[in-house]
Design a protein around this nucleic acid. Structure first.
Lengths: 232, 232
DNA sequence: TTTTAATTGTGTAAATATAACACAATTTTG
DNA sequence: CAAAATTGTGTTATATTTACACAATTAAAA
């Protein structure tokens, strides 16, 4: 059997929602398009699946081209497949979101793609069905972050508990109780006290922690609440 | 702009894990292939995405052809996209699972596809990456059913609490406490007492409930634990 | 007809987790 | 050295979860 008789072969795109956190708000790495179609408009970073390329390889390639980073945390969201979603040609898009440390990516890579960090709350209108993709990505991020400790992917190597809290507050767009949050996080035993303190602060300096990576790996699928308070 | 310059257009398949519940165990509706490739072997039900067909439309078509049912609950799992996953030709597969009432489907439709209900625990080896698909589907089903009341999709219109419990025990392959389960379920207020009793039983006849569909719709994304006990 | 076995429905107390809240310690600035 | 901002930790009330027991229903067996 050489090929399938079935005739409909179509373009497969990948589109990626890249989340970052600047210490205050959730950010998206968006493309100001300097190419057709829809030149001049905003879109997600994307690309086409190549002939001899595994889907995950393509995902990593696209993320690498945008950020200069490898081994980025990403998660598939959904395949978007409306017939006319792309006016140029029938294309299905496998959509995923990625979490990166905003300070660690390669600025030149981003510049080469004409990518900019945009506040999630001030995001411009995006082309095609990319707005829907972002909405769904945020929903999935919230869902996942409530059950698995993925927030760390958005922070630098060393971070403080107040920073982590601000991140979760940004993800859920709602305040958390400082004392309960701290207890909850520390009870997971996922954090290692580095002995250092955050020197950036203008008041009391917070303890810098780092992730216990072995524990993180092993507990990742333990599948329990990570947040608490009024998050449910 | 007429078409994208990019050349790689590939086949897009859809593959579906259909779950059912016979009152005792979880079942899969699997295809004994009487067509090439891999004739004689077992596989998931699948099909190719057509030229002018939305992805969701294709999903519904494939489910309809197999079961004769419309408006089936289904959920996308993941796109499988290894280069050589299908030895005949490069094909990506959008994989999803569906939940149906095992008694409600059209037997002739299943027969036409050469489909059989197989105990999840006794499932035969499947072609291509279909084993992986089933593994992932079960994982996602467990994940989702812990947080959202999707179990009802597998039961008849009217059902008893002991039936519902057996279903959850089958999904998680572990026993649940009868008293705690019952309280948990009833506290959701998702069940309406029909006033009838299950006549099939040889001992005490259990109350038949039906789903409060408005409440089910509105609470579906409330995103709280549905199960309890040692499930976490 | 009565007893037995299986199953269903409901209750209760202990343990655990969550929510709500208060105070002391640290650090820079004025 | 006082003031303002922020961090770390403790305590109590409430809610949820767990673990376990008993009474009621039904068909079949004695």
């Amino acid at each position: 059997m050489n090929k399938y008789a079935h005739s409909t072969r179509i373009l497969v795109a990948l589109d990626c929602i890249v989340f970052g956190f600047d210490g205050e708000a959730l950010k998206l790495l968006l493309i100001k398009r300097n190419f057709e179609p829809e030149q001049g408009k905003w879109s997600l970073m994307g690309g086409f699946l190549e002939e001899e390329e595994d889907l995950e390889v393509a995902t990593n390639r696209i993320l690498y081209d945008l950020t200069g980073l490898k081994d980025i945390y990403f998660e598939e969201i959904k395949a978007f497949g409306k017939v006319n979603r792309d006016p140029v040609e029938r294309t299905i898009s496998i959509c995923f979101f990625a979490l990166i440390n905003i300070d660690a990516h390669n600025q030149d890579s981003a510049k080469a793609q004409n990518a900019y960090w945009i506040d999630l709350k001030n995001r411009p209108d995006l082309i095609f069905d990319h707005n829907q993709m972002v909405d769904l990505a945020l929903e999935k991020l919230r869902y996942k972050a409530a059950l698995h400790p993925i927030g760390f992917e958005l922070l630098p190597e060393k971070f403080t508990i107040p920073q982590l809290q601000k991140l979760y507050e940004a993800i859920y767009d709602s305040p958390l109780d400082r004392r309960n949050f701290s207890r909850k996080i520390l009870s997971t035993n996922l954090l290692i006290d580095t002995g250092e303190k955050n020197q950036n602060s203008t008041t009391k300096k917070a303890i810098l922690y780092q992730l216990n990576k072995e524990k993180y790996q092993s507990q990742f699928n333990a599948f329990h609440y990570f947040i608490s308070d009024s998050m449910r």
